[in-house]
Every structure is written in structure tokens, then in C-alpha cells.
Amino acid sequence: MSGRELTLLAEGRIELLGRILRSSNATFLVRVTWGDDSACAVYKPEAGERPLSDFEPGLYRRERAAYLLSEYLEWGIVPSTVIREDSPLGIGSLQWFVECDFDEHYFTLYADAPETHHVLSRIALFDCIANNTDRKSGHVLRGHDGRVWGIDHGLCFSAGFKLRTVIWDFAGEPVPGALLEDITPLAEAVPPDVAELLDDAEVTALQRRVQRLLHERVLPVDRTGMRYPWPLV
């Protein structure tokens, strides 16, 4: 990601603009300003997380871990994301805001934009590795520049298999060899900056998911028909 984005997110003064509605946890649109430069970002404070039985508090760490994993793989799926302790409502994640048409999402892109399918299938693979529990259609965005992004990764990296996603259209398809090469190092070691945001069991489980993908070489199939998030969009 660009140095400008990371500088603004990591160093910029944060101004709360308003709450983003229809989010399970308290999520805010903010403006970050550094010198004469400014941009919008999405702020998810730990203080705004509702208690969950299967995830410890601190979902912001998983948002950051997903970004770092995407960068390590050089897939560019997750917008720039940092952790800020000096945020208005306390520690949380700060993610670059994607300017886009919010009427577009996974379902519309899959149906109407076949040129995005290679990116969508890569997001499906990323979600298998990250064990994404909540890939709704609205968590896939296409920026005004045409670039496709995946957002909202607070419910990822569980040690137990919890994959829930709307992206099943590529199930059973072979994973391209180049992508298998990209993920191969993860079978032996998870990058330290990712591992430090997870617990040991989650790190081990990530490696095992990669090992299974390398063995099977295809995207998984949901034979239960139950592995969908709700709501779908």
C-alpha cells in the first residue's frame, strides 16, 4: 500500500464524522489529517465490540492481521489497516475508506462483471486461509478505479473451522499454480507480524489450512449448504 495511506492512518489526527449504521459492532467514519493532507477511514474501537462466545475481545487485531496477511501474499485484497491506541474511543483498527458504489457487491459483481471473477476467486482462497466467519456480499467492494477489495475481517483466524461466506461459486475449482506458490511458505511459518496478533492455536490452524489447500489444490466445497453468513448482503 502507498506510504501516503499508511502515514495518514498511523500519524494523522482523527476526527469522528459519524457512526456507520447496520454494523454489528460500533463502527465509525472518521477523517484523518496529516499536515495539508486528509482522507476518510473506518474506525472500529474495541470499546464498541459486542461480546462474543467464540472470539475474545480485540477484533481490531484480526482486522490488522488480515491486512498484513494480504500484503505478505502480495494480493492487495485488504485496504491499508493500522492499530491506533490514541483514537477518540480508545484502541481499535483504522482502515482506509474505499470510495465506491455501495450498490455493487459480490453478487452483482459475479453476475454482471465477469472480468472480476479472478479477483473474486482469489478472495475466496484468502477467506479459506484466514478462516473468515463472515464474508457477506457487502464485504466485497469495487472502488471507483475498478479495483476489487475485501473488507470487514474482524471474525477471522479462529482455530476451529468456521468458514462462512457467500463466495461458493468457485467451489471445487483448481487453485491456480501461481497462487499455490504464493501460499506455500505459510505451511511452514506464519509471518511474525501476523502471528503476534493471534494465539498459538490460531497460528497452527492457519498453517494446517494452508497445508490442506496445498494437498487438495482446489477451493473447498460446502456439502452442507449451511456455511453462509446472515444477512447475505
Rank of each mutant, 00 (worst) to 15 (best):
R61W: 08
P45V: 05
F102M: 07
I77H: 01
G12D: 05
L89W: 04
W230C: 03
C128N: 14
C156G: 02
R19S: 12
R62L: 14
R84G: 00
T7F: 06
I167H: 04
P174F: 14
T108F: 09
P79G: 05
D86A: 02
L89K: 06
R4G: 01
G177Q: 15
Q211D: 13
A124K: 12
G90W: 06
V203A: 13
R147M: 10
E63W: 09
G12S: 05
G76N: 11
R227Y: 13
E85D: 14
I20Y: 05
T108R: 15
R31T: 06
R50L: 09
H139D: 08
D54C: 07
E85S: 13
D145L: 06
P231T: 10
L68W: 02
V175G: 03
V175L: 09
V42Y: 00
E104M: 10
L16K: 11
E46Q: 15
Q95A: 09
N25L: 02
E173D: 13
Y110D: 07
L125D: 05
E15L: 08
P192N: 02
S70A: 05
D37K: 14
P114T: 11
R122E: 14
M226A: 14
P88I: 10
N132C: 08
D101W: 05
A41W: 01
E216D: 15
Q95K: 06
G146M: 10
D145E: 14
C100G: 02
Y43A: 01
L163A: 13
F28D: 00
L8C: 07
T224V: 12
E216P: 00
G35F: 06
E173I: 03
R19P: 02
E115W: 15
D222H: 12
A205F: 10
G3D: 15
C156R: 05
V78L: 03
F55Y: 15
R223G: 09
R62P: 00
R227H: 15
G177V: 12
K44M: 07
R62S: 08
A111Q: 15
G150D: 07
S24P: 00
R50H: 11
D127E: 14
L219V: 09
H118Q: 14
G177T: 13
L120G: 04
G225V: 13
L163G: 11
P79K: 07
D222R: 11
L213Y: 11
P191R: 02
L186S: 03
A26I: 00
Y228H: 12
F55E: 02
N131G: 08
G160W: 01
G154E: 10
L6W: 07
F28E: 01
R64H: 13
V82Y: 04
F97C: 10
V233M: 04
A178Y: 12
L179Y: 10
G143V: 00
R61T: 06
S87D: 03
D134F: 10
Y60D: 04
A189C: 10
E181V: 04
S93P: 01
R223T: 15
P79D: 07
S38V: 01
I123D: 05
E5L: 08
N132Y: 12
T116E: 12
E181L: 02
Q211P: 01
N131F: 11
L8W: 09
S121T: 13
G76Q: 05
W149R: 04
P176S: 13
P79N: 09
